[in-house]
Nucleic acid binder design. Structure first.
Lengths: 204, 204
DNA sequence: GTCTATAAATTGATAGAC
DNA sequence: GTCTATCAATTTATAGAC
């Protein structure tokens, strides 16, 4: 067993712990939000001490940025894995359903729009901004295709569609339906998709 | 000039300051959110000292509760002032447009759903809960009427419609459109109403 | 690299003078 | 009732031992 292998094992353990830290961060962010999440919370959830946590991430901002980047990357992977045969609007529906399912299981929304503070912080994170722009680009492309095929409303600009679509991933109606209705996860997702694409009005 | 009049003047001044405090609280809540709003912020914005602020409101929770209650009361007043001739769906549209206009001018959404912490805090405020239930009742009534007239989607339960409707008052798409699009307030409100009632899909 | 202990700063809330 | 001054608790971040 060489020194190289030893280092490799160490690296693997380090990577595993990093994953555990990001998992814990994601869960706590989803439940308490950024402002109320403390580094003590994260360290305790992972089962390490706070200084160890700071060996992995140099600040709270850095940690949250890393968690958000991982989420965006998962969304990009999900988009990549979609069968090319799906219609553009079905791609949008599937991606939203995927995001809502993650949220219902205790994950985060992609759009951390809840507070200007968090948004401003993430805007300073260059790596995060790059990933978001990449995701934006992919989604805009799908929106343009869907519009060309007459599947999306021509009355709405691409901007409006993009932001309204993103906003559905963090729609508080999901939490309220979880708390105050008898709907299960699948029914909540179906209702949210219906509301997002068909609206509240009767279209008959 | 009797003592009674003197007291009355004092009371008036007290009331005026209370209004100023609630105005400041509303503006700060809208911009920073609950967790980041400090009592120092509020006191400084009003131009009084922190202990004076605590003479009016015994805690941060109490202060924020009062600001939320005032907002709900304004919504109830707005509903009350609507011409009875308006169709139910037009009433819903007008109320949402009113709420969005307040937000665009720096006010709060009615639905403080951003964090479970804030929601839990407000749930412990009996006076606030009573007002929200009253507002819920009024809106549910309008929804039922609109459904009976075939104006709202029959595919959606009243719960889903109610929560999806409320969620639009705090939709982050509004902030993103303000930041990244060239739309003015009226255009943003029109777009949000279109998205809410007609959805993203082409209905042709 | 991980821990115990602690520094430094912020903030909700109050005591006590006027 | 309003202010200055301050307490007590929390929290981000780090120093230094092992």
């Amino acid at each position: 067993m060489s020194i190289l292998n030893k280092l490799s094992f160490k690296d693997q353990a380090f990577k595993l712990r990093e994953t555990a830290i990001l998992d814990a961060t994601t869960a706590i962010l989803a439940s308490k939000g950024f402002d109320l999440m403390t580094m003590d919370d994260v360290a305790q959830e992972v089962g390490i001490s706070k200084p160890s946590l700071y060996k992995h991430f140099k600040s709270k901002e850095d940690l949250v940025g890393a968690a958000m980047i991982r989420l965006i990357d998962e969304a990009l992977d999900y988009l990549e894995s979609m069968p090319a045969s799906l219609s553009p609007i079905q791609q949008l529906k599937d991606l939203l359903a995927w995001a809502l399912r993650i949220r219902l299981k205790g994950g985060m929304p992609f759009l951390p729009s809840t507070s200007p503070h968090v948004r401003e912080m993430l805007t300073r994170n260059l790596k995060y901004v790059m990933r978001v722009l990449k995701l934006n680009g992919k989604i805009e492309e799908i929106i343009k295709k869907a519009k060309k095929q007459g599947e999306l409303s021509a009355a709405l600009s691409d901007d409006v569609i993009l932001f309204a679509y993103y906003a559905r991933t963090c729609d508080p109606a999901v939490e309220y339906l979880q708390l105050y209705s008898k709907l299960d996860h699948d029914a909540i997702i179906a209702a949210m998709l219906e509301v997002c694409f068909c609206g509240l009005k009767n279209q008959a």
